[in-house]
Simulated assay, not measured.
Amino acid sequence: MLTLDQVYHAAYVLKDVIRETALIHAPLINPESQIYLKTENLQITGSFKVRGAYYKISQLSEEEKTKGVIACSAGNHAQGVALAAAKSGIRSLICIPDSAPISKVEATKSYGAQVCLVKGVYDDAYQKACDLQKESGATFIHPFNDQQVIAGQGTIGLEILNQLADVDAVIVPVGGGGLISGVAFAIKSLNPKCKVYGVQACGAPSMVQALVDKKVEALSSVSTFADGIAVKCPGDLTYALCSKYVDEVVTVTEDEIATAILTLIEQHKLIAEGAGAVSVAAAMFNKVDVKGKKAVCLLSGGNIDVTILSRVISRGLLKAGRSGDLILSMVDKPGQLKEVSSIIADLGANVVSVHHDRSGENTGINDCYLHIRMETRNHEHLAQIRKAIVKAGYHIVQSN
């Protein structure tokens, strides 16, 4: 059984290894609430995962340490285990699917781990890790379904209560459930009145489904760019702890996650990965009851792949009404583009691209399509522009 003494012991073991990450006031995330950000995205390795991994490895016997550790991950857990093993002076082998971003593979190697690339997806890499563990006798470091790993993650709960004693709610990302299990256990043990909410991506609601059906079960598939919480099946330990200590687990959409990432960049100069930003998305879009309350959003990690960051920002701009597309059907004659551009400019928007298409199958011989992308202030500004263009006699075929 997980105990509060174990979480306190983990905090003692970790005090000279990890950072006590800052708690930052974020008044604009949800103006009806007092939102604070627990910045585990600024933790060493860029994620909370090193807490649980290091504590687990620190409790191994000398005999176990001589055989090393093995893990399976495509991201944050791999880097956490690699660094924890290196600091403990033991060998680590991480099985990673060959589809994982090169940046994450190289980061894992840089922390001192031996990397085994496995053809296929996470499940294939997991099976390979299990096979290698049986051959070598190394200790398998599970990413979430392990009591000592959960105790390590629970140290975040202790820090939050030390930093904001009168906190009303804590919002935590959920994948397999190791993070929220530790945080919820620590917080509820010390402050039972504090609400603890979990957040999953709508394309990977494994814990949500388990809690609804009151049993651990695997999803047939998951689909989300928040790869850190794209988990098909929660653990039996984490399910039991969530059932007892978590008040509610909700979901957020891909667009809501993208908007949260963009908001963190613009308002707080913080980079969060998709998994790390779901807590902020839940607060921004009122997925949990934080109105009039002091709430902490846990930013679990910041290791977003830079190759998709620009796409995430674009989605966030669209969701916030900061970017808009218009497709107009019009007669192809001189002055049309100038007039439409003038309407947009006079209303304070900025045209960033224009595409003029005369070749559409459904257009008349003298007609054309005009596709315009604009930078705008918000959804109300977009609506104002659309109304002005229609009033000027133009036909909008599509708008988003």
Rank of each mutant, 00 (worst) to 15 (best):
R377D: 04
S310E: 10
A169H: 06
K38I: 01
D289V: 05
G80K: 10
G46V: 00
D289F: 04
D325C: 12
F140R: 02
I44W: 08
V397D: 14
I57W: 14
S92A: 12
A295N: 03
A388K: 15
I24G: 08
V290M: 03
R386W: 07
D236A: 03
E380K: 14
P192A: 09
A201Q: 04
Q384S: 01
K338R: 13
G182Q: 13
F140A: 13
S342I: 02
V172S: 05
N400F: 15
L14E: 02
K338D: 12
G175S: 12
E135L: 12
V199P: 02
V249I: 13
L42S: 05
E32Q: 04
F48G: 08
P101M: 12
A84Q: 04
L298E: 11
L161K: 00
K319A: 13
G364C: 07
K67V: 05
G137H: 01
S47R: 10
L14N: 11
L219I: 06
I44V: 05
V50S: 02
I141L: 01
E375A: 09
N366W: 05
P101L: 11
C233S: 14
Y245E: 00
K214R: 11
M207F: 05
V252G: 00
A71Q: 05
T376A: 08
I29Q: 05
N378C: 12
V172P: 05
K128A: 14
G154D: 07
F140C: 09
N145R: 12
E62I: 09
D332R: 00
G182I: 01
I57L: 06
K319C: 04
T263I: 06
I304W: 03
T3Q: 05
L317E: 10
C95V: 04
S73K: 01
A283K: 01
E256D: 10
L264D: 06
V252D: 02
Q384I: 06
G152V: 01
Q6C: 07
G203H: 11
S206P: 02
A151E: 03
A260C: 10
I389H: 09
I150A: 12
A392C: 01
K49G: 09
Y111S: 01
V118D: 15
E375R: 14
P97V: 00
F144S: 03
Q133C: 10
S103T: 12
E361Q: 13
P234W: 01
Y245K: 05
V296N: 06
L14T: 01
R386K: 15
F225W: 11
Q34E: 15
T251G: 10
A230L: 02
N366C: 11
Q59C: 12
T253E: 07
K56G: 10
S359C: 07
I18L: 03
A125G: 11
F225H: 08
V249G: 10
V50P: 00
G80A: 05
F48K: 15
K287N: 14
T3V: 00
